[in-house]
């Protein structure tokens, strides 16, 4: 592993620390308690403690390109137990945000797609139209019949709506979304 200028971004630790409001990122001494309790670490390429290590060394590319940040469930177990008081879940959130802004979402295509569809629904209706979002998602990933058995069950229980519920002041949604940073 090379730590030369072309491989690392020495400012990345500081910018992530700033964006995620964490002032103890450099305190991490790699005890691995985050990884030990992480429910999804088994599916991660870099474990949570290794993501923090990548940040400490300035390996921006590796951190943003990891599968780990998209497998993170945002459960805050790491945050709750970190002996250095690092809000690791918040750091993961910020890495997802930066990855999306910089268009490096290769490992998180489905998550990003779902989030986009979800937010589009919220912008349009003020509330999320679950049926519509899921249907659009399944169509986009080329699995239109995904979860049909569940859909059948939900139909039976009249849990599926076919028209979105709209709030009265949908215009206010446009305002809230106006300053959203583009990705």
């Amino acid at each position: 592993m090379l730590l030369g200028k072309s491989q690392i971004d020495p400012g990345f630790l500081a910018s992530t620390a700033r964006a995620s409001g964490q002032d103890t990122l450099s305190h991490c001494y790699q005890c691995g308690k985050c990884t030990a309790g992480c429910p999804t670490a088994f599916a991660m390429d870099y474990k949570p403690n290794q993501i923090i290590r990548l940040l400490q060394l300035g390996h921006k590319e590796k951190a943003l390109g990891s599968r780990a940040i998209w497998v993170c469930a945002g459960c805050f177990t790491c945050t709750t137990r970190c002996p250095c008081g690092i809000d690791i879940a918040q750091v993961m959130d910020n890495l997802r945000i930066v990855a999306r802004q910089e268009g490096r979402t290769g490992q998180g295509k489905r998550a990003v797609l779902f989030n986009e569809l979800f937010l589009r629904s919220v912008r349009r209706n003020g509330r999320v139209f679950e049926t519509g979002v899921v249907a659009a998602f399944n169509l986009k990933i080329g699995k239109p019949l995904h979860d049909t058995e569940l859909a059948r069950f939900m139909l039976k229980g009249r849990k599926l709506r076919f028209v979105p519920v709209r709030i009265r002041k949908t215009a206010e949604m446009a305002g809230l979304f106006a300053k959203r940073k583009k990705g």
Partner: peptide
């Protein structure tokens, strides 16, 4: 006239 909280989709995005 409450609206969606944004959930994971919002906090992972912006």
């Amino acid at each position: 006239d409450w609206n969606c909280c944004g959930a994971t989709a919002a906090h992972s995005t912006d």
